[in-house]
Nucleic acid binder design. Structure first.
Lengths: 174, 174
DNA sequence: TTGTACTTTCAATCATTTTTGAAAAATAGA
DNA sequence: TCTATTTTTCAAAAATGATTGAAAGTACAA
């Protein structure tokens, strides 16, 4: 496969993955483009590569900077800004985890907690069903949250080794 | 908090979580409603509870059944169908993992693999950057995939214990 | 058969999200 | 300061995705 074709395929795939996971398709595409670019790119470059408007490019670059995935760079003697992505994928993954935990997991945990203390007889069938579900959800979402916190605070190779060791030691569900 | 208020709050929260993760808001709300209902519900019940049309209810129930999260039930002497959700949250989580791995993770892994073999001099800066990124992504996405496969094939309490033990043994990134 | 009680489908409509592009604001250099 | 260049903003337009509701389909009982 030619480089250009491969790049394009990658950018499209990343865009569609993003949009399946609640991330703006264009934002994911801009990120993909910067991830695989050897050099930093100007807004013009990005507009041309992805065929998007100036406003759109600007807006999504802003969002990526906000997520901590992209940074600006100034070149000597040049006025325009150049953008580049963090290339260490482990760091990228950690950054994404940090943001989504903050934006989505935390609020849900908050609601699960708030909602657990419902008034009335805990033996009543409807109250029982409600509390049961909410508590179990809290337990599992809470575990996921702690696991992600752990991922975020770990050094890559250590984390990967630990996980892969655990996964491989599958003493088939005792 | 009153049960009705708590239920509503939970349904709204679950809907918004869903839509942040690429799942139709109404589908998530129908699922939430069924999760916290002691009894199975008819399409009418669901339409009334969530204020949605018959077509919408039908369509999202179909999707939930497709994801393996909801099942139909027939009551003796009654013609209409009643729907209920799998209440074991661990099973629900596993089911969601199974589907998303199949629908989204696998296709991405495929693209990452396809795209790795790009023609040309591997020392060329642009090819180097591309291959580097694609390989690292493959490594990390691959690990996530194996981890999720592991989660899906594990019995709940064993998995939770294993994970929590690992998380707590944090020998702070050696 | 026919009528009834439901479920399913799908074109049209509505709502939300994304994108555009031109104007305004910012910035750097002369 | 003023001008040239670049970035930012944001209302309007476009695109996408969700929802409706009425018609078609299905299954059952009489």
């Amino acid at each position: 496969m030619q480089l250009d074709e491969a790049k394009d395929k990658f950018i499209q795939a990343w865009g569609s993955l993003g949009s399946n996971w609640g991330i703006n398709r264009t934002m994911a595409q801009v990120h993909a483009l910067l991830l695989i670019s050897a050099e930093s790119l100007s807004a013009e470059d990005i507009m041309a590569a992805l065929n998007i408007s100036r406003g759109n490019a600007n807006m999504n670059l802003r969002a990526l900077i906000d997520w901590g995935l992209v940074k600006k760079e100034y070149r000597a003697g040049e006025r325009r800004e150049y953008f580049f992505a963090e290339k260490d994928i482990w760091q990228v993954a950690q950054q994404v985890i940090v943001e989504r935990r903050k934006r989505e997991l935390k609020p849900v945990l908050k609601v699960l907690e708030d909602v657990r203390n419902v008034e009335g007889d805990p033996e009543q069938a409807d109250i029982k069903a409600f509390v049961h579900t909410v508590e179990h959800l809290g337990q599992i979402v809470g575990m996921a949250d702690r696991f992600l916190e752990f991922a975020v605070s770990s050094e890559k190779s250590w984390f990967m080794e630990t996980i892969l060791r655990t996964v491989n030691s599958r003493v088939q569900t005792p």
